[in-house]
Computed example of a mutant assay.
Amino acid sequence: MNNILLRLSSQENIYLELLCSQQWLQADGKLDRRSPLRDIPLKTFPLPENLTERVWKLAQFPKMDKYLPANTDWLFAPMETYIPVSRCPVAVTIHDIQAFETDLPWSNTREHRWFRYKWSQWIYKALANYRVIFTVSEFSKHQMVELLGADANKIVVVGNGVEQSFYDIASIDLLKLERPVNNPYTFIIGGLRLRKGADFVLDVAKGLLDANSDIEIVVAGDSEPEYVAAAKDLPNVKLLGIVPDNDLPRLMRCASSLLFLSHYEGFGIPAIEAMAAGTPPIVSNRGSLPEVVGTAGIVVEPEDTAAIVDILIQLEENSQLRQDYSQRGKEHAKQYTWSRCVDILQRAFYEYR
């Protein structure tokens, strides 16, 4: 969201203002100093954001037209929400519709059913009333059409971009970088969580131990308690917890592979970040991941532990294989830039207005 809005605001032919609740303003009338969007001009409304958004979604009220300048060409919501306006067309970004998937391990839990119910209160209105729907993959577009009956002609696939730091670190000598462990390792972003395939990852860790491999699994991100407890019994799993964004390119570059065995992704940015850094990604054959990595990544059945262990060992032991996937990945990742995303957005704003 930050990358898209910052780049839109820098375009010569676009004047961008933020619309947000007054509750987010600091004493100087701007957003928090830590916000990358702080210097973009603001329009505010007086109501609390969370309560107002719930009412928007449930009752399509209050109308927000009076808070928009008279010459507004578009209202753009860069994340999933419903904002009632009639003065101008509306565009929204919907990253995925996981809420409506029925074959995920958690699809029938009470929490997910409630999640689905809440989304059902607004998403059909958004799909019907909004002029254009942006999304991040052909997979997400297909699911909106298939599961929700959305008009495919209104959905524009924008994709995602990768921070420049991941491209930059690909050319740095590995010997000059600090490693999180001494042994070779495969890297995980997103913590050990059910949605991210934690069960599959722990099975792979056990498989590596059974194969007497010295490859470790290094995990960045917040992990769910049950998987933290399970990982304590596995000496080849290292949990880093939440790490600073600036450390991620280094951690990715030093890894012999990225292991991304998620059950469901609308896009899966870590796979492209790995490619940009020159690290081969091993991804599950679920959701958008096969689409995103194409033939430049390694797509696996996440339940096939033995095959995954074998791939990890091959990538570590066969430098030519690893180099081949590294080069293919770097070339593939070149197309995933924030500038390209903004170009697609701009074309859509002109085409659909």
Rank of each mutant, 00 (worst) to 15 (best):
L5K: 05
L5V: 14
L6E: 11
L6I: 13
S9A: 15
Q11I: 12
L18W: 07
L18M: 06
L19M: 13
C20F: 05
L31G: 10
S35L: 03
D39P: 01
K43Y: 14
T44N: 07
N50P: 06
K63W: 02
M64Q: 11
K66H: 14
P69Q: 04
N71E: 12
T72E: 02
F76G: 09
E80H: 12
Q98T: 08
F100E: 04
F100K: 07
L104Y: 09
H112S: 10
A126D: 03
A126F: 08
N129A: 12
Y130I: 09
H142P: 00
Q143E: 15
M144V: 10
L148K: 12
A150L: 10
A152F: 05
V156D: 06
G159H: 11
V162T: 13
I172Y: 05
L175W: 06
I189H: 00
R193H: 00
L194I: 03
V201T: 10
V204I: 15
G207E: 07
V219R: 06
D222T: 01
S223L: 05
V228N: 01
V228A: 03
A230P: 02
L234P: 02
L234E: 04
L240F: 08
I242A: 02
L248Q: 07
R253M: 10
R253E: 13
L261E: 00
F267C: 11
P270D: 00
G278S: 11
G278W: 01
R286T: 06
G297V: 11
E303G: 07
T305P: 02
A306Y: 00
E317H: 09
Q323A: 15
Q323G: 13
Y325M: 14
E331G: 02
E331N: 13
H332Y: 09
H332R: 13
T337P: 04
E351A: 15
